[in-house]
Nucleic acid binder design. Structure first.
Lengths: 215, 215
DNA sequence: ACACAATACGAGCGATCGCTCATATTCACT
DNA sequence: AGTGAATATGAGCGATCGCTCGTATTGTGT
């Protein structure tokens, strides 16, 4: 018996009253995820926390996964905005500065709501929302590949797709890890600056010589 | 009411008969985690899959978390062995070759049981075993810092601890991501080799100029 | 052969889960 | 003011959960 994996809203909220209900449910889900973890987030618990009856919850969401998916979407929209803004800013900047811009943006994005980000990063794979997140990643790769292409004369990169993979994966991991496991690093401006500079050097050094090694 | 988080065995298995029971339970847990995911892994389900009564399960494990923790330990021991072997081999090798050795080892380690690794990577934070995993990481940092120190004359690294963080985090992320999200890449020797070479260049390039930029 | 320890068993408890549905309330529109 | 649609309610169902405990079986030491 396959588990139900519906993540789409059950019906649309038309009146402002019901939109408030939906918002309260999503907000409650996020709060419980952060404060008590995925396991404690039962539908009954979420409804209670939202000050909404369990019946109303099921009017708009087919189940727990849909609630979590909604939280993910909301969070990802914020991340996407930061990334897109940074990419716009980076366009036209010289390579090194552009890379630095993107790295700072990555840190900012992770710092939006670190606790929620952590829980989501851990739980996303279990919500059936995984494919969409990977789609999100693919889009990121495409965007970054386009960005790299602007500087292709400086790079002469052999495999642009691979370079994008290296770029995105590395920056994501470093910022993610720093934000989640080294919070002290980001509170101290000097340490944070060192992280940014080291990461920039790592990436720029790689990009500058990438593909340029033909015996 | 705080959730129980005991992860230590309840009592020691003394006879070979009971050791077999314990092994069967751990093995069954791993299998269910891989095949059906964390949620489906109830204690009843695990006991059934192991061909052991639920009562026996609770003779040796205080709960589901302890089973998962045991699986984690077993898996981590295998990873640790690969890493230590690689570090021994890398010691004495010239820098670039040593880095390559470590990167290949990282890929090998992730390839031991990718599906299990994936599930564990997703579920570890929720078992109360998190601290131990982070301890494991710290140990890794220390080992790699020691490794880097051997080549310190080549690197003149300013902050060895930071360099280790960059090293470990980057290599882990790239190999992890490649194994889990780009399995095709590793099945084709040419693509895999390119990944290894690119990553090696990324790291060596970073290390060689690390800290060497004093205006 | 006997006794006791170690191990294995599984019915079934109380709690909680996801979720439904019959009913009550509020809103939009005339 | 009246009416139908939209929204909100929560008791409670069947299923499953983690887990206990009284009992049966097997192993060890003498």
């Amino acid at each position: 018996m396959a588990r139900r994996l519906l993540t789409n809203p059950r019906k649309q909220a038309r009146q402002s009253r019901s939109r408030a209900t939906v918002d309260a449910l999503i907000e409650a889900t996020a709060r419980i995820l952060v404060r008590e973890g995925f396991d404690q987030a039962s539908t009954n618990r979420i409804a209670e926390q939202a000050g909404v009856s369990i019946g109303s919850l099921y009017q708009y969401f087919p189940g727990k996964d849909a609630l979590v998916a909604a939280v993910i979407d909301r969070h990802r929209e914020q991340l996407g905005k930061v990334v897109r803004t940074a990419l716009a800013k980076a366009t036209g900047q010289p390579l090194e500065q552009a890379v630095r811009t993107l790295i700072v943006a990555a840190i900012d994005a992770h710092a939006i709501d670190p606790k929620l980000h952590r829980v989501l990063a851990e739980q996303i794979p279990r919500t059936g929302r995984l494919e969409q997140v990977e789609t999100f990643s693919r889009e990121n790769y495409a965007l970054f590949a386009a960005f790299l292409e602007q500087h292709s004369d400086e790079l002469r990169v052999a495999d642009l797709e691979l370079a994008s993979f290296m770029f995105v994966t590395t920056v994501e991991a470093l910022t993610h890890s720093a934000v989640l496991h080294r919070p002290a690093m980001l509170r101290e401006p000097a340490a944070m600056n060192r992280l940014v500079e080291e990461t920039t050097r790592l990436i720029v050094g790689y990009l500058r010589q990438a593909g340029g090694r033909r015996t």
